[in-house]
Design a protein around this nucleic acid. Structure first.
Lengths: 328, 328
DNA sequence: CTGTTAGCGCTTTCAG
DNA sequence: CTGAAAGCGCTAACAG
C-alpha cells in the first residue's frame, strides 16, 4: 500500500498524488477529487520513513531524561510531548538514570535515528554525549542542567529559589541548619547549595553543615540519622529536593522526632505529593510542565526556522509554605 | 556522511561496509579492519531511516498512554522503555488523556511512522483506534484495559484485588460502604466495581452505594462531600484508585472528619505516594513497572518471532494495609 | 570473499 | 497543470 497504488487507483501519476497530499502545487479540482477518494478507499497513509529519507527529516525528536518514572521528570516529558505533538512531531524517550554511559548510548541512538532535535536532561557530566551532539550538528536544548554556550537551554532559577527558602527560614528564626543536597556534579544541585552557602555567609549568626549525595528518598533515609548523630540537632534540615525531604521526614518520624515541632524540614521541586505528605511539605515550587513546554518550543524554533539564535530562558520559582516548618 | 563515504575511505564497496556493520556475511580480517577504521575516522553512524525503508522496520514502537505525568502510567512507560531498549528498539510516546479522538490520532501517527508495534493503554472506548490497528496489521498489545480476542494483553487482576480489599474490610467489621469508582467504560474500573458488588451481594449484612466518575483527585475532591451529604456516614469509602482516595481524604479532612477514626478510606494502585500520604493509605498494590515490562516482552515476541500466538497475561496484586483503615 | 545493482516509498526537478 | 525520472541511504540478491 503506497503512493503508487493510490496513483493507479486514481488514474494519475505519483507526483500528482504527492502534490495533493502535501499541497506543494496546484492540482485541478477534478484530479484532486479522484486522488482524495482513492486515498480514502485504500486507507492509505504516507510512509514517513520514505518521506523522511527524502526530506532528511524524521518528524521526531528525542528526549533524554534520567527517569520518566520520577514524577519530576514525568511532568516535563508530558509538557514537551504535548507541545511537540501540536507541531506534528513525535517524541522518543530514553531513560538514562543519569548514567554517563547510558547518556552516550542514548545520544548515539538519537543520531542513528536521525531525530530532528534533542531535548536533554543530563547528569551534568555528559561531556562526551554533548560532543557527539555537537559533532553531528543536532539541534538541541538542555533542560535544567548544564550551561553550555553552544546550546539553548531553559533552566529553573534554582539559586533564587533556595535563597528565598533560606530567607524565609531565617525570618522565622531558624539559625542552625543541616543541608542535605543532591549530587555535586549536577548543575541544579550546585546552584541550590551555592544559595544556601551564600546566604549563610552573609549572616554571622547562622550555623550550617552541608552534606551531598543523591536526589533520592533512599539516600536520605539511610544517611540522615548517622549525620544527625554527630551534629547537634538543628532547627531545620534543608533538603536539595522533595524526595530527600521525604526520606528525612520518614527517617526522623520513625525515630520519634516530631516535624515541625522538633525540627523543620524543607524540600525543593513541589512535586504533587509534597502537598499531601505527612506533614505537608514546605518547599519551592518549580514549573516542571512549563519546563518541558519551553524546551520544546525553543527546539521547534531551531528546527523549523533553523534559528541559530541561542536562547537561555530562566523560569521563575516560588516559595510554598506548608506544615513541615514552623516559626521558632 | 553515508555508507558510500565509508566505502570510499576504506577503499571497498558499499556492500562490504554493510556486511561488516551488520555481520551478515564473512569479510576478510583485512578489509574489516579498514572499514572499522574508516567508520571511526568519519564518525559514521548508519541511517536507520534508510535501513528501515529497506527492511520495512523502524526499530521503534509506539506507546499510547493516557498521561505520562500520572505516576501510575509513568512506571509502566519506564518498564516498557527499558525492556524495549535492551532489544535495540526505541519508544515513541503519545499522551491521549483518554480522549477518543486523541487515541485515533495517535494510532494514525503510529501507522504513518510505521512503528514495529504498539503498546496501548486506552480509554476502553477505543474501538475505532483498535480497528485501525487491525486494518494495518500492526502488532499490538493492550495493557490493563480492553480485552479483545485479536490481541495479546497483560492485565492486572483488578477483580481479585478489589475482592481482597472487601474481604479485609469485612473481616475488620466494616458493613456500611460507599464506593467511588472510575469511569464506567474503563475495563479496570468495571472489574473493580464488579468485585465490590459481588462481594456485597454475597453478604446480606452489607449496605453499599456506588458512584462512578473519573480516576482523578479533582473529581473525588469535588464529589465526595455532596455524596456524603445524602447518605448516612459509612464505615468505609472504598475508592477505585489512589488518586480518588487522596481526593476523598483531603475533602473529608478539610471537613473535620477524621480518618480512619470516623471513616476508613481505601485506594487501589499503591502509587509511590500512597505509603506517604497522610494518613498512609490502605490500598491494593499493582506491579505497574512489571506491567510495562511484560507488555514490551509480549510485543517483542510478536515482532521478532512473528509469533501469532496470542497471550493474555494476568499479573497478581496484593493487599497493603496501612493507616487509612481501622478495625471497627 | 567481494562488487554491482535493483529497489524500499517518497519528493522534486525537469520537460511538456 | 501533469508526468517521467532521478535519487535520498541502505540491504540483499546476483554474479563473479
Amino acid at each position: 500500500m503506497n503512493i503508487k497504488d493510490v496513483a493507479q487507483k486514481a488514474g494519475v501519476s505519483i507526483s500528482t498524488v504527492s502534490r495533493v497530499i502535501n499541497g506543494t502545487a496546484f492540482v485541478s479540482e477534478e484530479l484532486k477529487e479522484k486522488v482524495l477518494q482513492a486515498i480514502i478507499d485504500l486507507g492509505y497513509s504516507p510512509d514517513y520513513l520514505a518521506r523522511g529519507l527524502r526530506l532528511k527529516k524524521t518528524f521526531s525528536v528525542g528526549m533524554i531524561v534520567p527517569d520518566v518514572a520520577n514524577p519530576f521528570f514525568a511532568a516535563t516529558v508530558r509538557g514537551a510531548e504535548e507541545e511537540l505533538r501540536k507541531a506534528g512531531i513525535s517524541l522518543i524517550i530514553i531513560n538514562t538514570d543519569q548514567e554517563i554511559k547510558e547518556e552516550i548510548d542514548a545520544v548515539k541512538t538519537m543520531v542513528s535515528k536521525r531525530v530532528d532535535g534533542v531535548i536533554f536532561m543530563g547528569s551534568g557530566q555528559e561531556t562526551e554525549a554533548v560532543e557527539t551532539i555537537c559533532k553531528n550538528k543536532i539541534p538541541a536544548v538542555f533542560l535544567d542542567r548544564i550551561d553550555d554556550k553552544r546550546f539553548s537551554s531553559v533552566v529553573i532559577n534554582n539559586y533564587a529559589g533556595m535563597f528565598k527558602m533560606m530567607e524565609y527560614l531565617y525570618s522565622t528564626n531558624h539559625r542552625n541548619f543541616i543541608y542535605l543536597g543532591g549530587p555535586e556534579h549536577v548543575k541544579s544541585s550546585q546552584e541550590r547549595k551555592r544559595a544556601v552557602l551564600n546566604f549563610a555567609n552573609d549572616h554571622s549568626d547562622i550555623a550550617i553543615k552541608c552534606y551531598t549525595g543523591e536526589y533520592s528518598y533512599k539516600w536520605a533515609m539511610e544517611n540522615i540519622l548517622p549525620i544527625l548523630g554527630k551534629e547537634k540537632t538543628p532547627d531545620a534540615v534543608v533538603c536539595g529536593n522533595d524526595l530527600i525531604a521525604f526520606g528525612v521526614i520518614d527517617a526522623l518520624k520513625k525515630k520519634g522526632i516530631k516535624i515541625p515541632e522538633d525540627v523543620s524540614v524543607t524540600g525543593f521541586d513541589d512535586i504533587f505529593y509534597a502537598a499531601h505528605y505527612n506533614p505537608p511539605l514546605t518547599t519551592v515550587h518549580q514549573p516542571n510542565y512549563e519546563l518541558g513546554r519551553e524546551g520544546a518550543r525553543l527546539l521547534l524554533g531551531h528546527i523549523e526556522y533553523g534559528s541559530e539564535k541561542l536562547v537561555s530562558k530562566i523560569l521563575p520559582v516560588s516559595l510554598v509554605v506548608r506544615d513541615s516548618t514552623r516559626v521558632r
